[in-house]
Structure formats: C-alpha cells, structure tokens
C-alpha cells in the first residue's frame, strides 16, 4: 500500500511540471506587460524599463523559464509578487485558509444534503417526492451560482438583515456563500446519488438480501448505500476541485478575501510569480485530494484494495 502511495506522490511531480510549463507559456505569450498593468497607464518608459529590469522581464522566454525553475529547485524560492513585493507563498498561505474553509464546508453540506436526498429520491422512485426533488435539483443545477449568491444577499442581508453581505469575519459571514456553493454542488450530487442508488437497487445481490429475510430498510443501508457510494465518492473528490474554482466567483460576489480573488487579481496584473505559485499550489492540492479519494475508494471497495496490494 505504501508503495502505491509513494508512486502516486512521485507521479504528481510530472503533473505539476506540466502545469507549470503550460501556465508559464500562456502567461508569457498573451499580450500585456506586467509593468504596464501594475504601474498604471501614466507610467513612463523609464519606469517601465526599470521595472522590467528589476524583475528580469527583459530576458528571453527560455532564460526566464530556466531562472524560475532554478530558483525553485535550488532554494525553493517561488519569488515575490510583482505588485506587493511580498513572498508569494506567504501570500498564498495567508489567503488559503478562508478558501479552504469555504470549499470544505460547502462540500460537507452539499454531501449531506445531496446524498441524503438522493437516497430518499431513489428509494421513493416514481413518487411525487422523487419527482419534486429531481426537478428541484435540476433547477438548482442550472442556476448560475453568482446569481443565486446575489439573490441570497438581497434576501437575507438587505431585507432580513440576518447575515452579513460580505467579508469573512464571523461564522455568520460564511453562511450565505457556503449555502450558495453547497446548493449548486448538492444538486449534482443528488442526481448522481440517485442514479447510483437506482442502479444498485436493481442488482442481484439486493434480491439475495431480501430473500434472506432482510427488511427493505436493512437492504438500503447495509447493502445498497455502501455500494452506491463508490461513484459518489469519486464525484465528491472532483466536486472539491470544482469548489475551489467556484470559490473564485463566490469570493467576488461576497467580497471574501480568499485564494480565488488573489489569483484573479494576480492574473489581471500578470503578476507572474504569484500566478505561477498559486496555480501550482492548487494543482498540488487537487492531486492530493484525488489521491485521498482513491485511497478512500480502496478502503470501501475490497476489489480495488486487493488490486493495490498486489
């Protein structure tokens, strides 16, 4: 098992390298100089030149790439932000906890809501409840999250004064953004769980369990659910990744100072070091999450476990 984990961790390195190359190339090839974006329209050529020289932007593309890689490998130095001159990893680690909190809370709630309702929907297939839940899920899956976020703000912050419309100070400020993210994710999870459950319920071993004298309830919780969860777990893992991305939109709507907003601003400024480091960070995080998902999968499904062990 450890060998498998180590192998996966080592495989992450080429993935990250690939991400690094792609992002670096895109940033370098798209038009727009960081100097001009950061110093503003009124800066004169001298200031621009000074900026470029300071940050090594006057070198060629291969030279810049080489220097960047060299710094990382020799000193683990990911550089400082062009705009604020702060070490990039300090900035990322400072903003990350909020985004992480946002993504984790919404995954948690979306899982609870989505899976529970998905099971209910599947068990009561063809009933009015099932129909209602399925339609509701479809509606929420189609609603753009920023619109939902704004509606929630209008309703709960403006009119009812129940929750703050911005910031990340108290636990109350997390309620609306988490709700927004969770609802969208829950809708997808509901449908996935429902179809996984429906498929599982049709399996032969369910019939065997009933023939043993197990009650329909037993059958659902002890046999069907655990089997149905397998595809749902993978879905959750990917959902986490999407949440991290969705957090960007939500962070803008709710003015939450998380990693999402940091990246968007950095990209707009073409703040190379910050963009590179942030995206590498997220990529590594995502790889880690997928690894955990795979391990959980192996934990649940003994067929996979024996494959890994061998």
């Amino acid at each position: 098992m450890y060998k498998y984990v180590i192998k996966r961790v080592l495989l992450t390195i080429p993935v990250l390298l690939g991400v690094l190359l792609i992002v670096f190339t895109i940033m370098s090839l798209t038009p727009g100089e960081p100097a001009r974006l950061i110093l503003g329209a009124s800066a004169d050529q001298a200031a621009i030149d000074a900026f470029n020289q300071l940050h090594g932007l006057d070198a060629t593309f291969p030279e810049r790439l080489w220097n960047y890689l060299k710094d990382i490998v020799t000193d683990l130095d990911f550089g400082r932000s062009y705009r604020s001159d702060k070490p990039v990893f300090d900035m990322i680690l400072g903003r990350f906890p909020i985004t992480f909190m946002l993504a984790t809370l919404s995954i948690f709630f979306s899982a609870v809501i989505g899976i529970v309702l998905g099971v209910v929907s599947a068990v009561k297939q063809y009933s009015k409840l099932d129909a209602t839940l399925t339609v509701t899920a479809m509606i929420f899956a189609s609603i753009p999250s920023f619109w939902l976020g704004m509606m929630l703000i209008l309703g709960f912050s403006l009119n009812l004064h129940m929750f703050p419309s911005h910031g990340a100070d108290s636990w109350q400020s997390y309620v609306l953004p988490v709700l927004t993210l969770a609802v969208s994710a829950a809708a997808g999870l509901l449908r996935m769980t429902r179809s996984a459950m429906l498929e599982t319920i049709r399996m032969e071993y369910i019939r065997t369990a009933r023939a043993k004298g197990a009650s329909p309830r037993d059958v659902i919780y002890k046999h069907a659910l655990k089997n149905a969860l397998l595809p749902v777990v993978t879905s959750l893992g990917i959902s986490f990744g999407t949440s991290l991305g969705g957090a960007v939109v939500i962070e803008t709507v709710f003015s939450i100072p998380g990693l999402g907003m940091l990246i968007v601003n950095a990209i707009r400024d073409k703040d190379f070091p910050l963009v590179m480091a942030s995206i590498l960070f997220l990529a590594a995080l995502f790889c880690l999450v997928m690894l955990i998902v795979d391990l959980i999968y192996a934990f649940i499904d003994p067929r996979i476990k024996s494959k890994y062990l061998n």
């Binding site: 071993y205 023939a211 043993k212 499904d301």
Partner: peptide, 18 residues
Amino acid sequence: GEEISMIFQDPMTALNPI
C-alpha cells in the same frame, strides 16, 4: 431465509461485492 429460501441464477452478481 428461515423457512423458505431462494437462490438465483447468476452467482457472479448474487453476492454483495464489498
């Protein structure tokens, strides 16, 4: 299961794999 039991055709799918 206790007084009347039943076994089904395909053993490959009749057992809970996990």
